[in-house]
Design a protein around this nucleic acid. Structure first.
Lengths: 175, 175
DNA sequence: TTCGAATGATTAGTGCACTAATGATTAGCG
DNA sequence: CGCTAATCATTAGTGCACTAATCATTCGAA
C-alpha cells in the first residue's frame, strides 16, 4: 500500500439476523444501504486520489484542475459562471480562485461595465499549462485500465444518477 | 432550486477545434476527461446531499452515518478497525468520533489490556438510533427512484472502479 | 531484560464544500 | 428619479479528508 486509499475490508457475513423473515430485506438494508452511497464516496475519493500524482506535476489540486478545464474552454468567465459549470457554490469557488491567482494561472479583476461581477481570466502561464494537461486524460485512462468507451459508459451512468438526485417537478412545485 | 446541488450546465458544443484530425480525440479529451472524474465527484456530492434532509432527522452527517452503520454491525471496535472498514485515515475518523461522543451516540475509552487502542462503543442511545435508521435506505431508494437491483448494479460498478484505482501488483512490487 | 521498532491514536496544518451573513453594485418598478 | 429588490462576490463558521508530526504503549529481538 503506497498512497491512495486504504483498502476496503470485506465483511459480507452478518452475525445474527437469521430468524426474521418479513423484514429480512429491511434488516440487510443497513448493510446493503451502506453500499451505494458508501461505494460512491469511496470511488470518488479513490479516483480523485489517483489523479493526485499526475496533477502534482502540474501544480494543481483536483478541484483546481476542474476550474482550469473550465477556463480552457472559455477564458474570461465570472465566478457565477464557473460555479454553475462545476455545480458548486460560489463560496467554494472563491478561495479556490484566490489560490489559482497566487499560483499565477489566472487573474481576477472586476469587470468593466459591471463592477459586481469578477473577470476571471487565464494568464499566459495558465493558458500554456493546457499543453501539459492534454496528456492527463490518457494517463488516467491507462492508469485506471479503462477504454474510452468504458469511460463514456461510466460517465453516462453518473449523469443518470445525478439526474436522479434532482427533485422531480412534482416534488417541489412551489410552497 | 431548493437545497441540493446547483444545476449542471449543458455545454456539449465545442467552439473551434474542427480542422485537426490526428489529435481530434486528444483535443476533446480535456472535455471528455472532465467528464468521468467530474461526473463522479458531482454524483457523490449530489447523492450525499440527497441524504442530508433524511439524516438531519437523526442528527447525523453522512460521514457520521457511515460510522454508525459500522458500529451497528459490531459494537466495540477500535479506531483502526473503523478506519479500515470505511477506507479512511484514522486522522479523519478521530475528530468524527469525538463529535459522535459529544452527541451521546458512542463512548470512547482506552481498551483494558491494551492501552494503545481505543474502545469505541455504542451508547444505548446510539444503539436505539438504529431503529430510526432502518427506514433510511428505503426512503433513499424511493427518493432516487432506484430499485434494489439498480442499487446493486451501481454498487458493483463502483466497486469495480475502486478496484481499478488500486495499483496492480506489478506496479508497486516493493522498493 | 532492555532498548529500538512498530503500532494506535491524536494534533497541526492545508484545502475543499457547504450554509448563512455581509457588502457592494446594478436593475427595475413606482 | 429614487429606492427597494435582486444579483454578484466574499467572509465567517462548521465539518470532512488528507499528510506529516507527535506521543504513548507494546512488541520483539539482541
Amino acid at each position: 500500500m503506497t498512497e491512495g486509499t486504504p483498502a476496503i475490508q470485506d465483511r459480507h457475513v452478518m452475525p445474527g439476523a437469521h430468524g426474521a423473515q418479513d423484514s429480512q430485506a429491511a434488516q440487510d438494508d443497513l448493510l446493503l444501504e451502506q453500499q451505494l452511497c458508501f461505494a460512491l464516496t469511496v470511488a470518488s475519493r479513490s479516483v480523485v486520489g489517483a489523479y493526485k500524482p499526475v496533477l502534482d506535476r502540474l501544480g494543481l489540486t483536483h478541484p483546481q484542475y476542474l476550474v482550469m478545464l473550465c477556463l480552457w474552454e472559455a477564458s474570461p468567465r465570472s465566478v457565477r459562471d464557473i460555479s454553475d459549470a462545476l455545480a458548486q457554490e460560489p463560496a467554494t469557488i472563491s478561495p479556490l480562485l484566490r489560490r489559482l491567482e497566487t499560483a499565477g494561472f489566472i487573474t481576477r479583476q472586476r469587470m468593466e461595465g459591471n463592477e459586481r461581477t469578477l473577470d476571471v481570466r487565464l494568464t499566459p502561464r495558465g493558458a500554456a499549462l493546457r499543453e501539459q494537461a492534454t496528456e492527463v486524460p490518457g494517463i488516467m485512462m491507462a492508469r485506471l485500465g479503462l477504454t474510452r468507451e468504458q469511460v463514456g459508459q461510466l460517465h453516462a451512468t453518473m449523469m443518470d444518477l445525478i439526474a436522479a438526485t434532482r427533485p422531480g417537478p412534482d416534488d417541489v412545485p412551489r410552497r
